[in-house]
Amino acid sequence: MKEGHNSHKHDFEGSKLGMWMFLFTELLLFAGLFLLYSAFRSKYSQEFHSASAELDRMIGTVNTLVLLTSSLTMALSINAIKSGRKQASLLFQCLTVSFGLVFLVNKYFEWGAKINHGIYPNAPELLQRGKGDTMYYGLYYLLTGIHGLHVFGGIILITIMMILTLKNSINREDYVRLENSGLYWHLVDVVWVYLFPVFYLIR
């Protein structure tokens, strides 16, 4: 068969379309979680109000800045590979991964502090504090946990992209895999952009 326009090889537009559809499924996944959040928030608005005051706004803000900056470096790495600057692209990918790791380390300390205070799902101390707090912290662990897993996945993905860039498998002609990884990374950022106010700011 000749290389017609309907050959499936090297169809970058098609890969990107498929990637966006995968992102839609991610959006729907988080939509379900936000559905739970908004339902329980409307049920326990007072308790959610007071519980959110206990989260460390500083860590939340820092993590927001870290993730936003990692999105910038991600976009810059694709920009660099497009104009054939391999070293620059690698540097920016490396920075993205590092920011991702910083985010997770912060998260680790934040969770650790809460767990030390006896606040985690099914903890007797948490259950004593009442239904609203149990729901708030249940959702907190659930949403930030699932988001954290996505950050972790993104880190692995971009690390693989770094290896592929190093091997010149990703280059200025063929960079759709890096671009798709970037789309995924930005989406994880978008989700955090909502998680941040929802848990740390709305009082």
Partner: peptide, 13 residues
């Protein structure tokens, strides 16, 4: 983990 999201006695629904 018994979070309680669906358990009314823990505030769930």
């Amino acid at each position: 983990f018994n979070i309680g999201l669906f358990d009314p006695s823990r505030g769930g629904d």
